[in-house]
């Protein structure tokens, strides 16, 4: 890890934390992306418009970053078929476990929830094992 990427990680993380804090304190919503996005699918929870606004901002961030000179094109790590399988696991698993990287890993741990700490350690471990198997065994 070089100095610029460490600095970028700290700045980027602070923005994520600031966004979550603003959403929580001004609107009492948790910035868990899987929970926010899952609310767009039926059966719909009440008062859904804020989810659309937040996700629209999230999606619009990449073109904005590009205008500012960044290159936010993702380097995909698997074939479309394998990415579809991964997406299904991420979607289903995050709802079964009640959160994802943002909901458990940031918002949950920040409020010192033991559930979120356990969930975060679990998905870090299973993701680490998965990457190890794919990269060093297959």
């Amino acid at each position: 890890m070089d100095y610029p990427s460490a600095l970028a990680a700290i700045v980027g993380g602070s923005l994520i934390g600031a966004s979550a804090a603003l959403l929580l304190f001004s609107y009492k919503h948790t910035a868990g992306i899987s929970g926010i996005a899952a609310g767009l699918l039926p059966p719909w929870p009440a008062g859904n418009a804020w989810r659309v606004w937040f996700l629209a901002g999230l999606i619009a961030s990449a073109p904005l970053a590009k205008l500012a000179g960044a290159d936010p094109v993702p380097e995909l790590q698997a074939s479309p078929a394998l990415l579809a399988l991964a997406g299904l696991l991420v979607g289903y698993g995050s709802r079964l476990g009640g959160g994802c990287t943002s909901g458990h890993g940031v918002c949950g741990i920040a409020r010192l929830s033991p559930r979120s700490l356990v969930a975060t350690l679990t998905f870090m471990l299973s993701a680490g094992i998965t990457v190890f198997l794919i990269r060093h065994w297959l």
Partner: peptide, 16 residues
């Protein structure tokens, strides 16, 4: 749920 999520995250490098 967290374990299933982690497998998908590891395959793709994508979380939501």
């Amino acid at each position: 749920g967290a374990a299933i999520f982690g497998v998908g995250w590891g395959i793709s490098g994508f979380c939501p």
